[in-house]
């Protein structure tokens, strides 16, 4: 508000609709800010994300992701439980992904492979790959298929 303008009590709007609006509850805080893009929260509630219900371009992205193996073990990164969410809208793909380990030496390698492979999918123009850490990855993120693959490799999980 411009404080240089003196307050004029007669200068009040007369056309305000006094009927209640359709808000059920007033906002808890008057001025919320959007923090989403700065928080490592996954975009999917159910983890790991596996794309079970995906169709169209998203389906094609998931198929591509399933085809990427962990650099150290013959298991898909999806079955390993590294994917936390995938969305594609108007050719723009958002991929949320974690790593098993914060000091992962394959970080750059794996991330660039995911970016390239997702970008190669028909219908994807650009990719925003986000590394998220919360909730932290654990063995519970490994899918049944992933457990079977790791068992075949000689790892019991």
């Amino acid at each position: 508000m411009d404080s240089d303008v003196p307050y004029d009590p007669s200068d009040v709007p007369t056309d305000v609709d006094a009927s209640p609006d359709d808000c059920d509850e007033p906002a808890a805080t008057a001025c919320a800010y959007t923090e989403y893009e700065y928080v490592d929260a996954p975009t999917t509630e159910e983890l790991p994300a596996t794309g079970a219900d995906a169709d169209g371009v998203e389906r094609a992205v998931w198929d591509e992701l399933y085809d990427i193996e962990d650099p150290e073990m013959p298991v898909s990164i999806v079955d390993l439980g590294l994917l936390y969410g995938v969305t594609v809208e108007d050719g723009h793909a958002e991929v949320d992904m974690t790593l098993t380990y914060s000091g992962c030496p394959a970080r750059e390698m794996l991330m660039s492979e995911v970016e390239e492979r997702v970008a190669s999918v028909d219908g994807v123009d650009d990719v925003n790959l986000r590394l998220v850490w919360n909730p932290p990855w654990g063995l519970e993120m490994v899918t049944e298929q992933g457990k079977a693959d790791l068992n075949d490799f000689g790892l019991s999980v």
Binding site: E35, Y38, V39, D40, A41, S102, W133, N134, P136, W137
Partner: peptide, 14 residues
């Protein structure tokens, strides 16, 4: 600070 809070569980785990 959400950015700090979010990274703590991963580190504690390790």
């Amino acid at each position: 600070y959400p950015r700090i809070r979010d990274r703590v569980p991963k580190i504690v785990q390790e």
